[in-house]
Design a protein around this nucleic acid. Structure first.
Length: 259
DNA sequence: ATGACTTGCGCGGCAAGA
């Protein structure tokens, strides 16, 4: 089955692109970030018509995440437990697939700029709360995938020019340290695992002709527990989507997972 | 280069993104 993540930068503005992409890729589970709409106004029907069950965690104007699944969603939560968050950035779901299960956390991790400042502190606190929650889950003992827009450039190879990002909240040493601590709980960066030396990106700014100059960064990730990693047989970044009319500034990342 | 895009909100021009 295909599990995908995509920061769509407004689900209502991007609806035609998303539906066209779904018809092309036919993902079984699709995790969206930055839907920029309240839950009640999410355009449910076109997705339900394509056979998806929906869990939506929306917010007015900013943020918001949605998880679409062709499978039965047995459990879902829309908050990181024990973390008081007034922004819609998390959905955790358990999907029942042919009598097997997979747990998926769909995240829109805070941007954190400007650095330093309150927004950066919020980002680090959010990451620490996520880490504490992942510790409480026994992710080493189940098929677990953590995916979404991390707003983290893990290593220098993940930016067109890392020197330009040294004091940015996406790449500061504190951000990368916290990311490593999350990975160290037993998660694998699947795109990097399959492409050890690739300088590939998932985001290109709308400004300065960044796409045309390939000045991108890799900040959308699919991390997998050991059991899930063994179930993943391929992972791709669909950069062609960035060339479409009225694109999101992020492109989808898709994993092939067979439970 | 102080900007440069794009979106939501809401109807003028910010805030936020990364």
């Amino acid at each position: 089955m295909k599990v995908a993540s995509w920061n769509v930068n407004s689900v209502r503005t991007r609806i035609d692109n998303i539906l066209e992409w779904i018809k092309k890729e036919n993902p079984d589970i699709l995790c969206l970030q930055e839907i920029k709409v309240v839950t009640e106004s999410f355009p449910r029907e076109p997705f339900e018509d394509l056979g998806y069950n929906l869990i939506i965690n929306g917010q007015k104007s900013y943020n918001g995440v949605a998880t679409l699944s062709k499978f039965l969603i047995e459990e879902s939560i829309t908050k990181i437990p024990n973390f008081d968050d007034d922004q819609a950035r998390y959905i955790e779901t358990v999907h029942s697939v042919n009598s097997k299960v997979i747990r998926i956390s769909n995240i829109y991790l805070p941007n954190g700029n400007p650095y330093p400042g309150d927004k950066f502190d919020y980002k680090l606190n959010w990451m620490k709360a996520l880490k504490e929650h992942l510790i409480s889950l026994n992710i080493r003992d189940e098929s677990f995938v953590l995916l979404g827009d991390f707003n983290v450039i893990p290593e220098s190879i993940d930016a067109y020019d890392a020197d330009k990002w040294l004091n940015d909240a996406l790449f500061t040493i504190e951000t990368r340290k916290e990311f490593r601590e999350i990975v160290s709980l037993g998660l694998n960066d699947m795109y990097r695992a399959y492409n050890p030396l690739a300088k590939d990106f998932t985001f290109w700014d709308y400004q300065r002709g960044a796409w045309q100059k390939n000045e991108g960064i890799r900040i959308d990730h699919i991390l997998a527990s050991p059991i899930a990693a063994d179930q993943i047989s391929n992972i791709v970044i669909d950069k062609e989507e960035r060339d479409k009319n009225k694109p999101s500034d992020h492109v989808p990342i898709i994993a092939e997972i067979d439970l």
